[in-house]
């Protein structure tokens, strides 16, 4: 690629990639500032034609968008917490303890992440209905374990296996109890791995639409994707509000991704998980 042509082509390719990835976000931001009137007209400029914050006001004052934000954070957060606790335990057992059947167990956990979400919707709906759990937080937190627990366990098993066992054994020999060994010696070393697993588990739960669509029924329980799809009244889809909502909901996620990019990448490839 020494030729100038090669370099120009390469740079053009890089530019296209960045444009395809990021231009949509610019357009969302730009459109969120336009009036509803302008959004219903033919687009006239690539730049914002006005700076109005009515849509931002509307999504909080009229649509109460804070609620779905908190709902999503809570259900994804709880599912992540559960996944990290259960996943760390399992990973510790799998990587540290002399147990038989490690491969089948890991295989089973992987297999579960292949189970089609759509096939679980019906049975879970009937079970939750029977328990009067439809439209509750647990009706999302529990199924979200399917999304986050397998990847969490995989990442953590891979990560824990890389931590040399000598460190803990040495601590034990020095007279530390098992609990002390885990909390004082093992946990600090394992923290980055746990953190990586938690981010990915959280993002996978945050991504869900199908479970929320099927088990959530009133607006006050909507998660973020559901609320955005439902930004409408009986007659009208509020484009401006959707754009503003996407800006608000994507900012924290974009920041997470930018600051924790390395971790996410290593987590994704360590577990070979689905996106």
């Amino acid at each position: 690629m020494k030729s100038r042509l090669g370099r120009t082509g390469f740079n053009a390719l890089v530019a296209i990639i960045i444009l395809y990835s990021l231009f949509p976000f610019y357009w969302v931001f730009k459109s969120s500032l336009e009036s509803s009137f302008a959004l219903n007209r033919q687009t006239s400029s690539i730049w914002p034609t006005q700076w109005t914050f009515v849509h931002y006001e509307a999504i909080f004052a009229v649509e109460n968008f804070l609620r779905p934000l908190l709902n999503s954070m809570f259900v994804a957060g709880m599912a992540t917490l559960l996944s990290v606790v259960l996943g760390s335990m399992a990973a510790y057992g799998l990587s540290r303890m002399p147990i038989k059947g490690k491969v089948p167990i890991l295989g089973f956990i992987l297999l579960v992440s292949f189970f089609p979400q759509i096939a679980m919707v019906g049975p879970l709906f009937l079970v939750f209905r029977h328990l009067h759990w439809l439209n509750t937080y647990q009706s999302l937190i529990i199924p979200y374990l399917i999304l986050s627990l397998p990847i969490t366990t995989w990442i953590l098993t891979a990560f824990f296996s890389q931590i040399p066992a000598d460190i803990e054994e040495a601590a034990m020999v020095d007279g530390a109890t098992i609990t002390q060994t885990i909390t004082r010696v093992f946990a600090p070393i394992a923290m980055p791995g746990i953190f990586t697993a938690a981010i990915l588990g959280f993002l996978l739960s945050w991504n869900d639409f199908l479970f929320a669509l099927s088990f959530i029924q009133t607006p006050n329980m909507d998660t973020v994707p559901l609320a955005l799809v439902n930004f409408r009244n009986a007659y009208y889809v509020h484009y401006g509000q959707i754009y503003a909502g996407v800006v608000i909901a994507s900012l924290p996620i974009a920041l997470i991704v930018l600051f924790l990019q390395k971790r996410i990448e290593s987590g994704l490839t360590a577990g070979s998980v689905k996106g």
Binding site: R129, T218, N220, N230, A234
Partner: peptide, 23 residues
């Protein structure tokens, strides 16, 4: 007052769920 979703389909499903449960 229990406010149902503005989307007709969602509101319908909420009611179906409540009513089929015998509540």
């Amino acid at each position: 007052i229990e406010t149902l979703s503005a989307s007709s389909n969602d509101a319908y499903q909420t009611l179906i769920t409540d009513l089929t449960s015998g509540s």
